[in-house]
Write a protein that binds this DNA or RNA. Structure first.
Lengths: 241, 241
DNA sequence: TTTCGGATATGAGTGACGCTCATGTTAACG
DNA sequence: CGTTAACATGAGCGTCACTCATATCCGAAA
């Protein structure tokens, strides 16, 4: 988990020079992804910008997808670290604060970290050529894992500060929540370069609302962001009180 | 909307022969997508299987993406039709029944319609090379629109059988719901060839739960599928037991 | 120091791809 | 039957991802 390139590298760089080169290639890959997208990205250009001959590139990365996959893993590590740090460094009123914090962190990374807007751990590697056959299925597992890792870590964080609510479906619930949030935030950034604020707010609402069925209900917010003008009076059904 | 190839075709086929050819190419494209995925799919192979010379292929489709985009639009049309038909042909107790029905229809199409598992209207065209720059942004808008169209149609259906709940954020809410559901169902089919039943159930729960904040609350189900062993009362705190 | 051997570095080259365009074919009209 | 324009065709072009024969390095043995 510490090293960005889990098992995606052909040969693990040992010497300092090699390590720097791999890092530089990933950096340039990220930049280039922002500039031209995945399809237009060429391994030659990445190598050229990183000042690495193309042959050396292929000594470390198995192929173009491997390069992007390695970047996605590095992004995953970065996100997990920053997520944990952010949650640890704040005092939360309840678990919904943690949800907001994590989403904020994700949004901030989408805004500031090069390439993160294009490959926030693992979609490219899976969706773009998204195959449905068993053999090609391998790739999918990988991406699946990435989101599962995030979900699992997030669940740990929240369960920790909640005192472990025993709940069988909780693991799956967090996976679903992360998957859904990811999609909505992707939409938010498609709609607006800095991420549509309304959609980001809706994303938080979606996750809170969904997870609150699995976690003891927090004090429910008044009404939906924009609509709120008239509160569904008979809301007695769901919320705790 | 009637013709699958909205503005994606280079030249609109007029004669019967041409129409059949375009249709055949789209059919073979769908089949091939299931077999090898988007990246491995080659225009030559599509043309060969459709028994159309490659030159003719490029008379109708601007490029490889255009081909898949046209397929996505055809899929969109098919889904909208079947969605409307399914909802119309059932008697619903409340709006949540409509949600379930629509999701069931989507799942069935993923299972049975060739290529639909790989391109359910528009992701490939956007995500795979998912660029972040203004110029390349064009493609994204398209996919955005596709989901928006589904969301809009679904909203119409539900609002109709509900008596129009006035709510400003409703349009956005449906877009968010469709986007989230799409992602979770994608996950369900990554996890299981026929679509993981638990995840499909969770998808329905997610959408119901989220939309219920915008639509007058229906009789809420007892507890979450698996967990439900003890319903959270009013315990808003962190206490587990 | 010199010699040697295996690890590492390199970029011209290879096959395959997306796509074009000069040429061949058809068909409508006088 | 001749003229003209629309349509059909596949060899060919530029470019891509990726390889591999060769060059270069570097530490240890002599």
């Amino acid at each position: 988990m510490t090293n960005a390139a889990g098992g995606t590298l052909r040969r693990r760089p040992s010497q300092r020079r090699s390590l720097e080169r791999v890092e530089r290639m990933l950096d340039e890959c990220a930049l280039l992804l922002d500039e031209v997208g995945y399809e237009q990205l060429t391994t030659k250009e990445v190598a050229r910008r990183a000042e690495v001959p193309i042959g050396t590139f292929y000594q470390f990365f198995p192929d173009k997808q491997g390069l992007v996959r390695a970047l996605a893993l590095r992004n995953l590590d970065a996100f997990l670290d920053r997520m944990a740090a952010r949650v640890a460094g704040a005092d939360l009123r309840d678990w919904t604060d943690a949800v907001d914090l994590v989403i904020d962190e994700f949004v901030e990374m989408k805004r500031t970290m090069p390439g993160f807007g294009v490959v926030d751990f693992g979609e490219i590697l899976t969706t773009p050529g998204g195959p449905a056959l068993p053999e090609s299925r391998r790739m999918l597992d990988h991406a699946l894992d990435n989101n599962v890792i995030v979900a699992d870590r997030l669940r740990s964080l929240i369960v920790e500060l909640l005192g472990a609510p025993r709940n069988e479906g909780l693991g799956r619930a967090f996976i679903v929540a992360v998957e859904a949030a990811d999609a909505v935030l992707k939409l938010a950034f498609r709609a607006h370069p800095e991420g549509d604020p309304d959609l980001i707010a809706e994303c938080k609402r979606l996750v809170r609302r969904y997870l609150s069925e699995y976690i003891s209900e927090p004090p429910v917010e008044p009404g939906p962001g924009t609509p709120g003008e008239r509160e569904p009076a008979g809301d007695a059904g769901t919320d705790g009180d």
